[in-house]
Design a protein around this nucleic acid. Structure first.
Length: 279
DNA sequence: AGCCAGGGTCTGC
DNA sequence: GCAGACCATGGC
């Protein structure tokens, strides 16, 4: 990986095992939008970024080398060697194929609360609508960053809301779950700091104290919001994939990177649904 | 019109 | 433990 400053832009070249499109469109994040020209615009914390990938080169517009080294490098998980992980996850034929197809996906290091809240919204929902609800949540309760761009609201702000004031989000039955999460975080009944340091099963148990957080949402929060790579979220697609491809469970040797294996599998079977169709 | 969407809760065996 | 109804909303 080579970093070059080009005027106001930053160019990352000689990239290996990275697909911006697959990383941002694989359903782990909801605040990135693809534009006509193939670039992506996103909001992360109180920052915005537009970037574009062409082959093994990534251009971050209006970004300094310091911005990248201090923040975006970590956010996009460029410090983990995905080339090694990809080969590690290729010990059997299924994962070998999934890794080859989806090996450009990186796990983003996202904010814990934003991720938890987003995946509460994700239940029994589809990705475009999840994005719409999250977008209205930010517009209604977040801070203005620039014109038409708002930050993700803190749980303190949401904890002061009611089901009625959340109505503009049109989140349906999930509104009471969002409120319960915000209130339990504010009261300290559930603590992000404790979850960060707890072992995996205790962390998951603590998340599941929140109404509307079951095993799948907890695993998604742990994987995408707490960077727990051993989390293995099982949605309907992964359940189908497991039933037809791994009836005896995921190979034990993959346990420490199960979350990345899950991402590869998810992207793979969603693009080739016939693989998991039971005749 | 009816089904599905990166599920979870609640109830009843 | 496990199945089944139910939950709001929107796109197809």
């Amino acid at each position: 990986m080579k970093i070059t400053e080009n005027g106001k832009n930053l160019v990352i070249s000689e990239l290996d095992c990275f697909s911006l499109k697959d990383t941002l469109n694989c359903g782990q994040c909801f605040r990135w939008d693809e534009r006509e020209d193939g670039s992506f615009f996103g909001v992360v914390q109180n920052k915005t970024l537009t970037l574009k990938q062409e082959n093994d080169t990534l251009t971050l517009f209006d970004t300094s080398k310091t911005d990248f080294l201090d923040f975006w490098q970590e956010y996009f998980d460029f410090n983990l060697n995905y080339t090694e992980i990809k080969s590690f996850l290729s010990k059997d034929e299924v994962m070998q194929k999934a890794s080859t197809f989806a090996g450009g996906i990186h796990i983003l290091k996202q904010d814990p609360w934003e991720t938890l809240c987003s995946f509460i919204i994700s239940q029994n929902n589809n990705i475009p609508r999840i994005k719409g609800i999250v977008s209205r949540l930010c517009e209604t309760f977040g801070d203005k960053i620039t014109d038409g761009v708002y930050s993700f609201p803190s749980y303190e702000v949401i904890a002061n809301q009611t089901v009625e004031t959340l109505a503009p989000l049109r989140s349906g039955f999930r509104a009471k779950y969002i409120l319960d999460a915000a209130k339990k975080l504010q009261s300290g009944e559930v603590s992000i700091e404790r979850i960060k340091t707890a072992d995996f099963s205790n962390a998951k148990e603590e998340l599941m104290k929140i109404l509307g957080v079951g095993t799948k949402v907890a695993d998604c929060a742990l994987l995408y919001g707490f960077y727990r790579l051993e989390a293995f979220p099982e949605d309907v697609w992964i359940k189908r994939a497991m039933a037809s491809l791994y009836p005896n469970g995921l190979p034990e040797e993959y346990t420490s990177y199960a979350g990345i294996a899950q991402q590869y599998l998810f992207h793979y079977v969603r693009n080739f649904p016939e693989i998991v169709k039971i005749p």
